[in-house]
Design a protein around this nucleic acid. Sequence first.
DNA 1: CGTCAGATTGATATTCATCAAGATCGGTGG
DNA 2: CCACCGATCTTGATGAATATCAATCTGACG
Lengths: 252, 252
Amino acid sequence: MADLRITALVAPGPAALLEQALSKHDTLTPKDRALLHHLPFRVRAYGRGHEIIVAGSRPSESCLIVSGFTARAVQFDDGSRQLTGMQVTGDFIDLHAFLLRQIDHSVIALTPCIAGFTPHAELRRLVAEAPHLTRMLWLTTVIDAAVQRTWVANFARRTSLQHLAHFVCELYRRLEGVGVARDHQFDFPVSQQQLSEVLGLSVVHMNRTIQKLRRSGLVIWKANRISILDLKGLVRLAAFDPTYLSLSREPR
Amino acid sequence: MADLRITALVAPGPAALLEQALSKHDTLTPKDRALLHHLPFRVRAYGRGHEIIVAGSRPSESCLIVSGFTARAVQFDDGSRQLTGMQVTGDFIDLHAFLLRQIDHSVIALTPCIAGFTPHAELRRLVAEAPHLTRMLWLTTVIDAAVQRTWVANFARRTSLQHLAHFVCELYRRLEGVGVARDHQFDFPVSQQQLSEVLGLSVVHMNRTIQKLRRSGLVIWKANRISILDLKGLVRLAAFDPTYLSLSREPR
DNA sequence: CGTCAGATTGATATTCATCAAGATCGGTGG
DNA sequence: CCACCGATCTTGATGAATATCAATCTGACG
């Protein structure tokens, strides 16, 4: 609890993070920014492996990641699960439930996480009053979908090595955008077991694919830290084209 | 051209289809319906294989499918492509471009298609004036994303037979919802080549997987028509749970 | 009847899952 | 300090799933 309070003082709060994230896509008016900063956020911390959003539930709040790595999880009958996407600092991960009502998947904390929650009633007010901000929030869900489209293509047509390389490229770009990665390096405290659930591989094959990527000399990956030595080479290997992340600032 | 005019007379127009599609998720007010029917739609026909939306372009209109099957396509450098989703009658497939500006993928006609286009300026007006309708349109993009999440899970964790079975289940549910399928049957004039691009398999393996599904006795699949003999069995094989399609009508 | 696209079959190579067994490392109690 | 433990990472061996290559078959249609 003491921990939490300190973090809240040192790091930007949910509203500031959201402002930063949205600003990557379009310029916000002073009125937009004011509205964002009036959104009330309840902040909560989660331990590794905890369920932040429970599949099948009907939340009355939507959730924004303040720090840590989370993943969307689809449960199977046999108890196994597939992680279908990763979210990082600044991602407003749960606008879905605002519209879906009943949420079809879980969101779990891959690492210790801090999340902020804001009531659907507030979002509803925003939609009624602030068309531009509404489009911006809508945009984040559409980009989320674009990322998933890319993931489908990766699963279907790329080798495991290319898939992993693409994953690293995407992660770096997204983390860089929120200031969590720089100089081609970032912390990635996610186990190979967890990563295998993201990439849909067995743990053994995940391990061998990571080793292959290491031997390629494009990255150094050890002790929960990834350093990209040759970003151009990695991008070429992954056939990574960041268009789908919509990282240009333009009128929306 | 004559063909097109006849179709427009016989079949429901874009606005009526959109009304029907949105009504699956929530009750529309008379005002909502009036606004929808005031949306101007430009209607156009496409031949098999034609590109309805071109990747990288910046459309000024958004597109709704009036009839036929379309797919989103991600192009690779080597000229091959992966189809990352299928759209059917009533799907407002291109709300994305309204927000993304530059569209990151193509949409192609898998069969002869009719599409309706409405200007972004009209949608923008709608967002400013009709909060409920805005949420409903937003909802359709979020459901689209939910479908893609499910696809990721299918690619990652299911056998090709289960994947195919899941695809048939989803397709039937969606076609049934817009009145294009009934009595556990529907036309599906898509070649195995095209389907292999959807499921991410080689054509040969696609063919063998279809044969396996036929031999299971759960479906009859010939001459571009699919008849589901044992829907329960197919659902069990596919582990199909339609929650992600959000087909319940409730306040959104 | 010839042609062509689509569907099918057989043979072989590659990728990946699975099972089983170490190796490494940080932490913990004696 | 050391022995032990559990979690994580790594390695080897084997079989199943899938891609690839090369034919052949089928039906629609001019």
